[in-house]
Design a protein around this nucleic acid. Structure first.
Length: 661
DNA sequence: CCGTACAATGTTTTT
DNA sequence: CATTGTACGG
């Protein structure tokens, strides 16, 4: 028996087998376009979804729907921008239906690729024990190679620049020549040398059995397109592919999407071209425009009704995208009536700005707003330093998301280097990092030691180890202790926490002489141990740290942590997809937001504008935009600041200006 | 060849 | 302002 399910405008059928009762009342909670997306089970779809239009909701219900129809959870792939987003979606789907929903294959493109390569990497001759390089690692390796090849005084791109060029060209499929011509014309004549350097980098990674972020994607494309029988069987086991935030995918990710759909051709991509904010990572909103070429019979569904914000905030948002040159035209609507218009608040200086925000937050708390429902959004992580001080003074607990992550801190990288070396002794970078900690060992001696050592030697390591082979070693005992520790880490059955404990004990004397502020840094080790306690396997601990690093840095007022009630300070990039009742956006000053960087380039300016749009549309109830009229910057001293162009473009009837007396 | 002291430099966003 | 390179003494 099949039930016929017809909607007024669009006619299509959904079959429900008789033994499967429909448990979720979809019609009650979804609008027409959302329903259409949720009930589509065949073919490819592109959902153009405005901010707050319920795209997450749609994907969640579709997930539940597919499971309800009886599809195997492992035949469904859900790729999202962060792992947190994936988890939340699957949790919600599980709540709607049952926990089968949480068994869906999901995560970010990178984490999904990682899992695939661990399982099937041998198909493309990949050693399964590879470790992952984070961005800084790739930069350092490129720097090493650069120093070998490039003579000291010649003008040659810095290591960070090299990494940018490498990553960008690979992710976008641009040739190095074209990219240099466009972005770094002064290095154009070095195209050949740079290409050679990249080949050396590539070889280094293969020899040392390490993959960088870009390799994860690149090899996954290779694997999925290998036509290998096992790979194809995996692809045949997939029935549905869903991609969230498609506007922020790049060329490589589009290739993965295409490859995943090789046999099923069921892709649903969801995105908003006006929210594309990751071009620096090779993402291009044109990807979403090209989607129909990639999947010829694609059907486009638009979600334009906004459920998040009142009309007052949407009017303001619409004003921002009105000025976008390139976009799918759209206007957001809402039925919600707001409490007040968005407010723009000029302040005398940055300090008054912080005071205003803190005062306003205290007012809101008095009104009964929950601190969890308030966020301060910033263009760049360092914008909030002054505010953070003010919050501390007033004892308002906050968490900061974005900016420098704690896995990037030198002392955490040191500890992790011990662990990484114990997993992959060919990880030269980590090994030399810990060797040079020892007294009397610098780069040269470290390299000597590394060239002598291998895994077998370490396994059988004892007093007879040929330390003597290394010339003029001043402190044999230290090296001996280090190798003993590494052997212990690599081969002994111990819990992860125990291993980390041992590393910390060994590391402490070096740590204390390396950092003057070691007592401040010390508490990070506890955080590391806390994170580690969730894992029993070292490999997955390390890969998770690389693929999904905890990005909320300081959670202040540790005693009050139990309350779980924090103000959130976040970069706009990290705030993507999230929402709060009250949103503050601070330092909306020309040169800060949009940043100086983007002023020379129209495309980048457009992206800043989209970024502003993303920031504004995070607000569910109220929006406060502040800017100081006077800034103290270190170099230039104090100077008058102009409000951002983005603010001047907005028709004053859509906001109120507050004057602080 | 190591370690340290000092100078220079350039500053967004993240997997 | 903090990281990264360079020069020099041991």
């Amino acid at each position: 028996m099949a039930k016929e399910y017809t909607l007024r405008k669009e006619n299509y059928k959904v079959e429900i087998t008789s033994n499967l009762k429909q448990r979720i009342d979809y019609e009650k909670v979804l609008n027409e376009s959302q329903l259409r997306a949720v009930f589509s089970t065949d073919g490819s779809y592109l959902l153009i979804a405005g901010a707050g239009s319920g795209k997450t909701r749609t994907l969640t219900y579709r997930t539940a729907r597919l499971i309800e129809l009886g599809y195997n959870p492992t035949s469904i792939v859900l790729l999202t921008f962060t792992r947190k987003a994936a988890k939340e979606m699957l949790d919600r789907a599980s709540a709607l239906l049952d926990e089968r929903c949480s068994k869906i294959l999901g995560g970010t493109f990178h984490s999904f690729s990682y899992l695939l390569l661990r399982q099937y990497g041998n198909i493309i001759n990949l050693d399964k024990n590879f470790t992952i390089l984070d961005q800084q690692d790739s930069i350092d390796i490129l720097g090493m190679i650069r120093n070998e090849i490039v003579s000291k005084n010649s003008r040659f791109p810095q290591k960070d620049t090299l990494q940018k060029i490498y990553s960008y060209t690979l992710n976008t499929g641009t040739s190095i020549e074209d990219y240099l011509l466009k972005e770094y014309p002064h290095f154009y004549h070095l195209t050949n040398e740079i290409e050679k350097l990249f080949i050396a980098y590539q070889n280094y990674k293969i020899e040392n059995n390490v993959l960088d972020y870009d390799d994860l994607l690149k090899y996954t494309v290779l694997l999925l397109n290998s036509n290998d029988k096992i790979a194809d069987n995996f692809l045949k086991s997939l029935s549905f592919i869903m991609i969230d935030e498609y506007q922020d995918t790049n060329h490589l990710q589009a290739l993965i999407t295409k490859a995943l759909a090789k046999f099923n051709n069921n892709v649903m991509a969801v995105g908003d071209d006006s929210q594309s904010i990751y071009s620096f990572r090779g993402a291009n909103f044109k990807n979403i425009m090209e989607f129909p070429q990639l999947f010829p019979k694609v059907q486009i569904i638009k979600l334009q009704e906004n459920y998040r914000s009142p009309q007052e905030i949407l009017d303001f948002s619409n004003e921002i995208i009105r000025n976008l040159k390139y976009k799918y035209p759209k206007v957001l609507h809402s039925n919600k009536k707001g409490k007040e218009k968005p407010a723009i608040i000029p302040t005398k200086n940055e300090q008054e700005q912080s005071e205003f925000i803190v005062n306003r937050i205290l007012d809101l708390l008095d009104e009964g707003v929950n601190l969890n429902e308030i966020a301060v959004l910033i263009r760049s992580a360092y914008f909030s330093y002054d505010l953070e001080l003010e919050l501390q003074k007033k004892k308002i607990p906050f968490q900061k998301i974005g900016g420098i992550k704690f896995v990037e801190a030198a002392h955490i990288k040191d500890v992790l280097a011990f662990l990484k070396t114990s997993v992959n002794i060919k990880d030269v970078l980590s090994f030399s990092r810990i060797l040079t900690l020892l007294n009397g060992i610098g780069h040269k001696k470290a390299n000597q030691i590394i060239s002598v050592l291998n895994f077998d030697l370490l396994k059988n390591f004892d007093k007879n180890f040929p330390i003597s082979k290394i010339n003029k070693l001043t402190n044999e005992e230290e090296l001996f202790q280090l190798l003993k520790l590494l052997k212990n880490l690599a081969f002994d059955e111990e819990s992860l926490a125990e291993k980390i404990q041992k590393v910390i004990i060994f590391y402490t004397p070096y740590f204390q002489s390396k950092f003057d502020d070691y007592n401040k840094r010390e508490k990070d080790f506890n955080s590391l141990l806390t994170i580690a306690s969730r894992y029993d396997d070292l490999q997955s601990f390390l890969s998770d740290l690389a693929l999904d690093p905890p990005n909320s840095s300081i959670i202040d007022f540790e005693d009050e942590q139990k309350e779980k009630n924090f103000l959130t300070i976040s970069t706009i990039h990290s705030a993507k997809g999230l929402e709060w009742e009250v949103v503050f956006i601070m330092n909306v000053v020309e040169g800060y937001f949009p940043s100086y960087y983007s002023l020379k380039n129209e495309e980048q300016l457009e992206e800043e504008r989209r970024l502003f749009y993303v920031a504004v549309t995070r607000a569910k109830e109220r929006l406060y935009i502040t800017y100081p009229m006077f800034i103290n910057s270190n170099e230039m001293g104090s100077s008058f600041a102009r409000p951002s162009t983005f603010l001047k473009e907005i028709n004053p009837k859509f906001y109120e200006e507050w004057i602080i007396k």
